[in-house]
Design a protein around this nucleic acid. Structure first.
Length: 593
RNA sequence: GCGCCCGUAGCUCAGUUGGAUAGAGCAUCGGCCUUCUAAGCCGAGGGUCGCAGGUUCGAUUCCUGCCGGGCGCGCCA
């Protein structure tokens, strides 16, 4: 059963009007279309609108306006308790004006649900595994990883809020060539540290952090690695470096406020024999075959453009092989669907992983990939140059230390993931309205502050049942309430499309409306009532200028205790929705700024 | 060469299964604090939705071609 939000009530009314029209023969419908209601672009067009008549028109072979008129007349009869007006507008829109008293219900729902407002059970408890970051433990996280982390975190929150059971997972590539290279690089620096001759590996890892790891290794292990044979030394070096760097990654993510349920190690995957099992299964199905002394996965059978090598001529496995095994394991663990957050430079791998999922007998749709585009770091409008090859990049940690975890997360989530992101460090630090993070957080803190002042004057924020809601039904209040009522729909759409930026945009809009309202209307009685209506001595330019400003005049409006109570209660609900939205993004909702 | 993503105001970007007169922030300009946080508000200007076709009652949205930018096309990860 759905909530009694206005949107749902209108959809229900529309749907019953459609079936009435069908039953009475007024509209010759076989199937009912999917119904949606939206906020119209202009307030003159009412509170909510529907384009259903235009969707239905071709099916019943009648002009949209006619269909709309039929529906409108039914709705006027049946929905008298809900609608003030039902209008028909060309080319066939139905525009609804809701009875003002009904909007109070929205506030009551928010108060009753609190932090659960916006949540739903659409996911029906289905199990989803979200894998994100999964950076190789061969260096610290950089800003690109940060974007993936923020996105994976927010997407997981969204899925959880819509009724999915979510597992957050980080896959550790702690086996294979890259790790060997890491070990060799660190070992070389370790030898250098001990004043010995060394050969730095081709394609080795540069960057100062390698020196730091080597030094730590020297301090912890002394010179012991100099005595063992080279292979053994490299192995130990790999293990040490991996552990160190992974610990740093964990720490950076903790400071960033991004958590995981499971850190899944490739070594453990291999140790459990999952790779051989996966390949055996595929061989049996004739989906893996031998050619040119290598083993190939027949991914082209599943819309990949060509087959892919899983075991090389030298007998070692490719990265793809263990990834296939990993995803098979995920599915075998009983997850209904898998979501991966990947850097956009990996987009070429999507078809082959989809192929793998299907090769194991699962549906293609059970595997979704969200691609995250590059982050351009700017400082006061100028691009910060980074060279990954030379090991010169700005780390996530540096950014978080500089601008804070909240600002960093919010900025990472301000754009659609598949568009490039310009991240201006100076802007993220700025404490003004230019900075969207502060703007939204300030709205929350401002309400909190208002409540503190109220309390200091002995005024409690009332529960809605003690409030006469007819006091909050003017245009300015309705505008706010309407925005609040959209929140569950935003969460739902945002979760379905895995696009947290919609929440970010929504919050900026809600905060703007709050600030506007706050500036225009008084909530508490004036501190000094004597000022109201009193004329000033210096009736010169300054004063008349403020009279010309409509907002300044409104500022002097007198408020009764009933009005104060109603507005405080409204503010409480606005605060709840801002807090809920920020929570989805993983951003804190401060009481003070 | 092939594939994927992007192209919307000076800049950065939203735009929900195709809908009404295309939006926001920044920047620019002009106003607003004696009262609840000015970390805020109000107002103004600013557009060939990359270009050309097509689909239809209707296209920023879908299709085709082209132009421009990014990325990918390893028995690397």
């Amino acid at each position: 059963m759905k909530s009694d939000l206005i949107h749902d009530l209108v959809v229900a009314a529309l749907s019953s009007a459609l079936s009435r029209a069908k039953d009475s023969g007024e509209l010759d419908l076989s199937t009912l279309p999917a119904l949606t209601v939206d906020l119209p672009k202009r307030e003159e067009w009412g509170d909510l609108s529907s384009n259903v008549a235009m969707l239905v028109a071709p099916k019943v072979r009648r002009p949209p306006l006619e269909v709309a008129t039929v529906l409108a007349s039914i709705l006027k009869d049946e929905g008298q308790d809900l609608f003030d007006r039902v209008d028909v507008a060309p080319p066939g829109f139905l525009n609804f004006t809701i009875h003002p008293s009904r909007w109070g219900d929205t506030l009551k729902i928010i108060e009753a649900l609190g932090s659960a407002f916006g949540s739903s059970q659409i996911g029906k408890g289905q199990r989803v595994l979200v894998e994100y970051v999964s950076a190789n433990p061969t260096g610290p996280l950089h800003v690109g990883h940060g974007r993936g982390a923020a996105l994976g975190h927010a997407a997981s929150n969204l899925l959880q809020a819509t009724g999915y059971s979510v597992q957050r997972e980080y896959y550790i590539n702690d086996a294979g060539r890259q790790l060997k290279l890491l070990g060799a690089s660190v070992l070389a620096r370790y030898q250098e540290y001990h004043g010995l001759p060394f050969t730095f590996p081709d394609d080795g890892y540069h960057g100062t952090y390698i020196h730091a790891v080597a030094e730590a290794m020297a301090q912890e292990l002394g010179a012991t690695l100099l005595d063992v044979n080279p292979e053994e030394a490299e192995e130990q070096s790999s293990a040490f470096a991996c552990m160190q760097l992974l610990e740093r990654i964990r720490q950076d993510l903790r400071v960033f406020g991004v958590e995981f349920d499971e850190w899944y190690s490739e070594t453990s995957l291999l140790g459990a024999g999952h790779l051989t099992k996966a390949l055996e299964y595929l061989k049996e199905k004739d989906l893996v075959f031998q050619k040119d002394d290598a083993w190939w996965f027949r991914s082209s059978q599943f819309q990949d453009e060509k087959d892919r090598v899983v075991a090389k001529q030298d007998g070692t496995y490719t990265y793809l092989a263990s990834d296939i095994a990993y995803h098979r394991d995920k599915l075998h663990r009983g997850f209904d669907s898998l979501i991966n957050i990947w850097g956009a430079d990996h987009h070429g791998y999507v078809p082959r992983m989809q192929a793998a999922v299907q090769a194991f007998g699962y549906r293609k749709e059970q595997f979704r990939v969200v691609l995250v585009q590059m982050v351009n770091l700017l400082r006061a409008g100028k691009k910060v140059e980074m060279s990954k090859r030379a090991g010169e990049f700005v780390t996530l940690r540096e950014v978080v230390d500089e601008v804070g975890a909240d600002a960093a997360k919010f900025f990472f989530l301000m754009r659609r993931s598949d568009s490039h992101l310009d991240f201006d460090l100076e802007l993220a630090k700025r404490q003004s309205a230019d900075n969207p993070v502060y703007y939204v957080q300030y709205a929350h803190a401002r309400i909190a502050s208002l409540f503190r002042v109220a309390e200091s004057r002995g005024i409690q924020v009332p529960s809605l049942q003690d409030v006469d809601l007819s006091f909050v039904t003017t245009q300015d209040e309705l505008r706010l309430i309407k925005q609040l009522s959209c929140y569950p729909g935003i969460i739902e759409a945002s979760a379905a499309s895995l696009e947290p930026h919609r929440v970010t945009f929504y919050l900026q809009e809600l905060a703007a409306q709050l600030h506007t309202y706050y500036n225009k209307h008084r909530i508490l009685p004036s501190h000094d009532p004597g000022v109201v209506g009193e004329s000033q001595e210096d009736g010169g330019g300054g004063f008349s200028a403020s009279l010309d400003d409509p907002s300044a005049q409104e500022h002097r409006e007198t408020v009764t205790p009933e009005l104060t109570a109603a507005r405080l209660a409204l503010m409480r609900q606005v605060q709840t929705v801002i807090r809920n939205g920020l929570a989805v993004l993983g951003v804190s909702a401060p009481e003070h700024m």
